[in-house]
Write a protein that binds this DNA or RNA. Sequence first.
DNA 1: TGGCGCACGGCAAACGTTTGCCTAGTTTCC
DNA 2: GGAAACTAGGCAAACGTTTGCCGTGCGCCA
Lengths: 333, 333
Amino acid sequence: MSPRASSPATVKIGDVARAAGVSLGTVSKALNGTGSLREETRRHVQEVADRLGFVPDSRGRGLASGRTYTVGFLTTDSFGRFTLPILMGAEDALSVGRMAVILSDTRDDRAREEHLVRSLRGRRVDGLVVTGRSTDERARVDIDIPVVYAFTRPDDPEQCAVLSDEAAGAALAARHLLSLGRSRILHVTGPQRHRSARVRAEAVVDTAGDALVGEPMFGTWSEEWGRRAIDIALASGLDVDAVCCGSDQIARGVLDQLHERRIAVPEQVAVTGYDNWDVMALAARPPLTTVDMNLGEVGRRAGEMLLELIDGREPARCEIIVPPRLEIRGSTV
Amino acid sequence: MSPRASSPATVKIGDVARAAGVSLGTVSKALNGTGSLREETRRHVQEVADRLGFVPDSRGRGLASGRTYTVGFLTTDSFGRFTLPILMGAEDALSVGRMAVILSDTRDDRAREEHLVRSLRGRRVDGLVVTGRSTDERARVDIDIPVVYAFTRPDDPEQCAVLSDEAAGAALAARHLLSLGRSRILHVTGPQRHRSARVRAEAVVDTAGDALVGEPMFGTWSEEWGRRAIDIALASGLDVDAVCCGSDQIARGVLDQLHERRIAVPEQVAVTGYDNWDVMALAARPPLTTVDMNLGEVGRRAGEMLLELIDGREPARCEIIVPPRLEIRGSTV
DNA sequence: TGGCGCACGGCAAACGTTTGCCTAGTTTCC
DNA sequence: GGAAACTAGGCAAACGTTTGCCGTGCGCCA
């Protein structure tokens, strides 16, 4: 087969060497800043390389140096709302280490995951960032290169991970409501079988104490549930001056239903969300006070940690908990 | 530097050869189904390779075969709402060609794009999918490998592209409203400087004809604008029985404001959106009738076309227009 | 002026594959 | 029974780098 029939034959290191009148190894050293060369030589080679538009072939480079400068980004949860900011953060951190990121979306399919991991292994990636839903633990990826889990919690506690402090986030919202003098707080959140929902609910219960009205209401992560929850709560005669929601979507539903019933937000009832999902939180009326998990930061820290692991440096901590942040807007005074 | 200090030294093709008692080249042929070998030999080699857990090194493979089986996915628009489904579709199509996808997010930064393209070139990717906002044309990427533009329109008409038929989509919505007997249709859409807004508006005007009330209302792609537009329209005494919106977000705002004013949807006024963005369209009350651009299909077709180009086959058409589809829900009868 | 050391840069092995060519052995056909 | 025609698989070159080691020529010092 004709090797790479690209039109104007790619320029390789030998071409640069010839054009610069030096040896092939010298070009490599000049361009990589290694070996011992006169500054003048380096400059000259650099110039020639630029003129010729030389870009070193990562295959040869990888083969010779043992590093590919490539990492895999493995996600179970397609590229949903949560995965995305993490990906962006990770890319940020990794690109300063000149790493390229290969995307692998398992679509939550075991066989597909196996195939993808095999492919990544074949590409000799230097490391792996694994992410997915935070709701449950995920099985560790069986591969003998550095792996950092982001957002999702690996079932093996030895593995490095960067997680969001969900309890702290929920507490943040609850405390905020308390500080506003609210004393009859309702908690509406997602399905009880989801770890996130449970953890957040527990934190709200602990923080709000006597100020909590009734039991946490578990349902689904939808606007629809937010609306229904309000109906249910009011129908059962609950007296409420704040609703602490498990997600922005739920909060949006809550807001709509309160509006519907002519209950003033935030005057009569304050509302908080969770996620700081801009399209939801900012478009709500009033704009939603909500917890931001700093997912970008989660991804960034995961990328940084992976770089450390790849470089063989032991990272200070192998589990990083990223603190969330409260974004205060109009839905709470 | 120690070449790849991974714990249990990676098994290479030579190891398999030795273990199977054949030559190195034979292993390659057996595993790749090339050359002429006895079926028995192939099986035997395959077995040994499996037992040893051999995964060929893509660097060596790429170097020898001239193909990297890697493509770049270059996006200007971070990985927003539109880019994502395209990415997923493209990945779908490319993964059947055993291609890995390297992500490159330019963040709309010229310098960053240059750097990323250089990096992709260094990795000798076999091809490139370029995507971004559909609102404007984008400068062609200067690289001498196959490139397919998806969703975004390249400024050079020679380039291959897969686009969504936005005019058809808007017409679809307008025609649907007409077919329901609506005769006083208002069009509310995004900024006039956006190509998408202009194209869709033009199509609505053409399709609705006399049934169009007033001029298309250009604004922003936000819920806020949807709400305001309704206020403005009603304040100016417009009599309307349908609102054809340029996006789901706008439609959502329109719905909310109509609801606010106790105007029944769809009985008194029917509403259509554009994008079929599930979190918006499904959570709306009533659920939104909207145009789905089939972005997954756009990505898939782009991936397929790229595969063809890489394989040197001239694709039948170099510009593919993917037809949109109307998703009918409760906001129109 | 002679010797030593140092700075610079060349040489070639190594990285892990694929693939065209060649050879040895087996069959087939007269 | 012998030669021609295949068949199966070995051999080695090639892909494009990096890097350790070595040699050469120069400067410096005595």
